[in-house]
Design a protein around this nucleic acid. Structure first.
Lengths: 208, 208
DNA sequence: TTTTATCTACCAGAAAAAGGGGATTTTGAG
DNA sequence: CTCAAAATCCCCTTTTTCTGGTAGATAAAA
């Protein structure tokens, strides 16, 4: 019987997991906490095998808590718990020592499976999470590498300045600004300013 | 005894709410659905007084579902349910006819209170939600009200199309497109396309 | 030292957008 | 039906951007 400790600030979720595991033959909920420090404190006197850790906690994030838990309780297996399957969250959680990642839309079976798998020292990934990790690895259609000056010009273009105004502001010739603009269009592989501004914002190359 | 119907695709949450209301003296869970259409179907033969509707459902969003539910069951009270207290979600949910908005970190007491309050025909807002609605009221420096056609043209402009290309795509004269463009610039109070695209993205008036 | 990248500057012409008008038809709400 | 808003189309001028080149100065990397 695997002892499971739940760390989540949503009563609904805590109660939900307890309910899902209520008549389980493999796992039993041994306790719960609504934030990170309370969890660290409780676990001192409350042995557990697996911890379900929400990514968003009131006092700290699940990734940091994962590190703290692993330091104090090296044998404790940790499963990340979140509503979203965001790549960065998942990978950072794994890096912090988690044995898997569960979505809150998990079924009772997935939950039990995850607990059992992590208990055995193996890694658990639900289908959905695994899909996120494996499939969309290579995305970004090559984001343009801009020089410092180009970024500067780009920002001013997005601010709505004309070439003349940019030239005045940077104390350079309007012809130079035009050159930068041309190079920018080429690097972004777009044919006008509108599309460039859009891409620049999409890739967060300029400030809003 | 208020009959509560839960619409949420997270088994943990559904079970959690059931557990929280298990020994309630005022409310009882009469059923649950994991998506919008299944909910609409089930409610035909399953009378309920209050529906807890998650904002994020697999087949539709909670706001649209709220509208559909209200159309079919005018007496059904609806409580929005979400992890986040985002202003736009809350207000749109209320506009769609909801009687309140609950966060998933609600306690058993809040849950019962919300159900009882909405049952009486009054509006329920948790402290946290109310705070979001009242405090940061004045923000946005007047975002332009665009017509459907203007939005369409704006999106295509941001996509990098020229007036001619937009005209071809929408089967209208280039002169018309130019008019729309001029009106857009006036509404945004900017003097070129770059600044307009930037603002449009900032105000999320167009898709990325 | 040679190469490469960057920033700078220039020319000329074509294309598109911006500014400032006006006008007609469609359509939806009252 | 009626009015107002939205969508459509038109003209003219000026400004700006875009296209497609070239090229010198400088600094960093090979």
């Amino acid at each position: 019987m695997t002892r499971v400790f739940i760390i989540d600030d949503h009563p609904m979720v805590v109660e939900g997991i307890k309910a899902l595991l209520a008549n389980s033959e493999t796992a039993v909920v041994c306790g719960s906490a609504h934030d990170g420090y309370s969890a660290l404190a409780q676990l001192k006197s409350l042995p557990a095998d697996v911890a379900l850790v929400d990514i968003n906690l009131p006092d700290m994030n699940g990734i940091d808590l994962c590190g703290l838990l692993k330091k104090d309780y090296p044998d404790l297996k940790i499963l990340g718990l979140s509503t979203f399957k965001e790549r960065s969250y998942i990978t950072r959680m794994i890096e912090a020592g988690a044995s898997g990642y569960l979505l809150k839309n998990a079924t009772k079976e997935e939950l039990e499976d995850a607990i059992a798998t992590s208990r055995q020292g193996r890694m658990y990934m639900s289908m959905e999470v695994a899909a996120v990790l494996t499939k969309p690895a290579p995305e970004r259609p090559a984001l343009p590498l801009l020089t410092a000056r180009e970024k500067e010009v780009l920002q001013l273009i997005a601010d709505g300045l004309t070439n003349q105004e940019i030239a005045d502001k940077l104390f350079i010739s309007i012809l130079t600004v035009d050159s930068h603009r041309k190079n920018l269009l080429a690097k972004f592989n777009v044919k006008n300013t509108a599309a460039m501004v859009r891409f620049a914002l999409e890739y967060k190359l300029i400030e809003l």
